[in-house]
Design a protein around this nucleic acid. Structure first.
Lengths: 344, 344
DNA sequence: TTGTAAGCGTTATCAA
DNA sequence: TTGATAACGCTTACAA
């Protein structure tokens, strides 16, 4: 004669000789219920160890109170900061967060999107993978009116809220800074150009050069997937140029680090022989020697903003939305890797 | 006359003049259904754009195919690696992963646990917070037979699978290494002792000292929450000792980094004046100058193991479980911060 | 302010 | 091998 499964609202109703709907309403703080009734029901519910069956409620209401997050890689400081931001807002608003990483793999990304859709997440926050050039799996959300918010690696062609950083100005600031520091032959290690962020960083870089009257030299441009190995290969290739670079703007800190480590190994001095600027402000950038000048992106705030916009959209379902693109400011953090003659 | 809401198995059944149960069975690959029928149903389902209503299925089966993960902080390399490992296994096995961070806050941890429980996760993977000394919120899972797996910061008192690293041997190895390198006055910056991992790291350290005939000096021990600031405060305090340490074993890399940065600022040489060893092998440890000797923990593998054990338990529900504690090996990574006279 | 009753889409039981 | 039917626990018109 143990407890025969979980108590339901019907058990409570029977206990109090009232109807289940009243119990339901009271427990959902429906203002239509009188204060004494509510109090009584709450008390009894607690006493009977009632726990709402969220599965039933979700099923009934077609809502899950769950936000899906899909991004390339959890295990990167920028992305995990974004998750932290999302999680904080979501938690405060009573939402649960489901996270999946695509590993920059298009097939996995497609499957994840479908799974999240089938799982009826109330909304989705996405940063797309490096290989992604087809967006059908995301259009699905847009079409079926499931709120969708992009961050960082966004898709231009889909209408949705977008949280990005000002990659163009970031690239511009980075390159301008290198020019100010005396850079004449400024190389760029960039990411795949199907991603707008890398296009923009590149454009910013190019415009800064042009503004300074420095011609953009194609042999000074390398594009790859920005892994540690890619960075090493890129710097090797750049060093084979007849005219070696005297400064490098890397589209992320990982490659900036590779470059610095490789140059150190080769006895080439950073910043004296070659200056380096990265992008993202990974934690290691501050503490490596020389510390890496970089463009800071407010990951945590971006996550918060993304979650806020998404939840707002979820709550105002079927009201028309004016999609906005939030451009978060970047900040150039000047450290040792780009400043010659510090002690002069 | 657009599509009037989603197609259900009933729609398919009507279309084919068969029963909904047959459709359900076919779509679930129930072997009782004849091959031609199944094929036909699958074809029609696809043609009609059928998408199973997972909410309904979850409700009906009382399963969610969801794994809950609760840990202190997403935004730490070790933890995000664990998540990556969990996510990989879970994804392969058709499970969804829900992640929440407690921020080492006990109240938040309690609330998260209850939310996950109410959301009927099929199982929970946990690493508890620094403040956690009461475990009722976790016992709930154990009592209600919801599979539970601990990792890293485990709870002794609850019977469950546990994935830990050999913290004792890690501490022992770290301290022994410092002794071998000539350390005589070896300090320890440790974490809160209600967590077993920090107890064990401390014990390992103590035993290594004793084995070498070095008395353990209480003034050489600091315990705190191991943040960046805590590390700085700890080293300040240690430097005020009449007998200054010549080596420090830090219970994580974050404090090891603080120590190194502080000493650098004060013109105290690492490792020549004071040697430092950390714990965790955060990415920055390899690249900071001097690079930090540390104890490597296989976060990704721990995550995978945790997920595997959990899912096995979920699938073999109500079979009795022999709980095991998996002790993953640690590895001492020797770098610059603990080796004097490298060039001799 | 409360009650009645229908129904969400699926799976499971039993019968055919 | 397939079908009929009930049931899961909740929310929500609608009625009282």
């Amino acid at each position: 004669m143990e407890k025969r499964s979980e108590t339901t609202i019907h058990d409570i109703a029977r206990e109090l000789n009232i109807s289940a709907s009243t119990v339901s309403r009271a427990l959902n703080n429906n203002p239509i219920i009188s204060e004494p009734t509510r109090k009584l029901i709450e008390k009894t519910a607690k006493a009977m160890g009632y726990r709402p069956n969220i599965l039933a409620a979700n099923f009934r209401t077609k809502r899950t109170n769950t936000i899906g997050v899909m991004l390339p890689l959890i295990n990167r400081h920028f992305f995990s900061s974004v998750i932290s931001g999302i999680e904080e807002v979501a938690y405060d608003q009573g939402f649960t967060v489901t996270i999946s990483q695509s590993n920059d793999n298009f097939e996995k990304e497609t499957k994840i999107a479908q799974t999240l859709f089938s799982n009826r997440v109330d909304g989705l926050i996405v940063s797309i993978g490096m290989q992604t050039t087809n967006y059908d799996h995301l259009k699905l959300f847009a079409e079926k009116k499931v709120p969708l918010v992009f961050f960082d690696r966004v898709v231009d062609k889909i209408k949705a809220h977008k949280i990005i950083v000002d990659d163009y100005r970031g690239g511009f600031k980075a390159a301008s800074h290198l020019i100010e520091q005396g850079g004449k032959r400024i190389a760029h290690i960039g990411g795949p150009l199907n991603l707008k962020i890398y296009q923009d960083r590149l454009s910013g870089y190019k415009d800064a050069l042009e503004k300074a009257g420095i011609p953009v030299n194609e042999s000074m441009l390398v594009h790859n997937s920005l892994t540690r190995e890619d960075g090493t290969n890129a710097i090797k290739r750049l060093l084979q140029n007849p005219e070696k670079p005297d400064a490098i703007f890397c589209a992320n800190d990982t490659t900036a680090l590779s470059v610095i480590l490789y140059l150190r190994k080769k006895g080439i001095k950073v910043p004296d022989d070659i200056m380096v600027v990265g992008f993202s402000n990974e934690p290691f950038s501050e503490v490596v020697t020389p510390s890496i000048s970089t463009i800071k992106q407010p990951g945590f705030e971006m996550g918060k903003k993304a979650a806020e916009l998404l939840i707002k959209q979820i709550k105002q379902k079927d009201k028309p939305v004016r999609y906005k693109t939030l451009v978060m400011p970047t900040e150039l953090v000047i450290r040792e890797s780009s400043v010659k003659n510090r002690n002069k």
